[in-house]
């Protein structure tokens, strides 16, 4: 299978006049790659689309996380990032939050899954999240899976068409957190398995050509197998 050229950390991308984009740095008079990935120029900016990455919070990002620790005035939430997020009690109880009366532990204990947005982050302090807003809050049911954040763009596709295709062909509702955590809403275990299988394919082959065709193939393939199973 053919692929685009892959660069490795330290490799010179250009010595020409370009702006430094994602996963690149300027060294002497050249711009070099800092991660394994595929170089891309857009306008006069050069960047490297990493083949593997991890989530660094950005303000306004929609993320899915799991409560890891409960304090009297906040929850700490694992957002699958180098940085653990903070959900202040005020965000949940409102401005009249009173630590002597309101009990954070009774409200949400460790293990609670949340759909939230990043409201503050600058690397010097832990990211702060909110669950106030449309569609945000505690997730009660569904299935959770994970995709490397470097593959989210491919998973969603141009104007969301890849994600729509998966949803339609599996009859599921899929929420992709910018941190790579994915919520699959469906009653059907086999549909959930099919979605996960497709996501894993995208994670593995996102950088190769004709991704859309291969995704369609895997989604239909499974359909045929299932038909076989039911007819047998």
């Amino acid at each position: 299978m053919s692929g685009k050229p892959i660069v490795v950390p330290g490799e010179i991308l250009t010595s020409g006049y370009y702006r430094v984009g994602e996963n690149t740095i300027k060294l002497d008079n050249s711009i070099i790659a800092t991660k394994v990935g595929i170089p891309q120029t857009k306008g006069n900016t050069i960047r490297v689309i990493a083949l593997k990455s991890f989530y660094i919070p950005k303000i306004h990002d929609l993320i899915i996380g799991v409560v890891s620790e409960v304090y009297y005035n906040m929850w700490r939430v694992n957002i699958f990032s180098p940085y653990v997020a903070v959900l202040p009690a005020v965000d949940v109880f409102g401005r009249r939050f009173d630590p002597t009366k309101d009990n954070t532990l009774k409200k949400m204990d460790a293990g609670t899954v949340l759909k939230a947005r990043i409201t503050f982050f600058d690397r010097t302090q832990d990211p702060v999240i909110t669950i106030r807003g449309e569609g945000l809050g505690v997730i009660e049911k569904g299935f959770i899976t994970y995709v490397n954040p470097s593959k989210i763009a491919k998973l969603i596709g141009k104007k969301g068409n890849m994600l729509q295709k998966i949803e339609q062909l599996t009859n599921t509702k899929i929420t992709v957190g910018q941190n790579g955590v994915i919520l699959i809403e469906t009653q059907s275990i086999s549909a959930k398995d099919k979605v996960i299988k497709t996501i894993k394919l995208i994670e593995r082959e996102a950088h190769l050509s004709n991704l859309g065709d291969r995704v369609t193939k895997i989604l239909k393939e499974d359909e045929e197998n299932e038909l076989e199973k039911t007819t047998n």
Binding site: V8, P9, G10, N23, T34, V36, K52, S150
Partner: peptide, 11 residues
């Protein structure tokens, strides 16, 4: 490190 996606100046 490169496999983990950790940015580096060189190998």
């Amino acid at each position: 490190l490169a496999d983990a996606g950790i940015p580096m100046k060189g190998i």
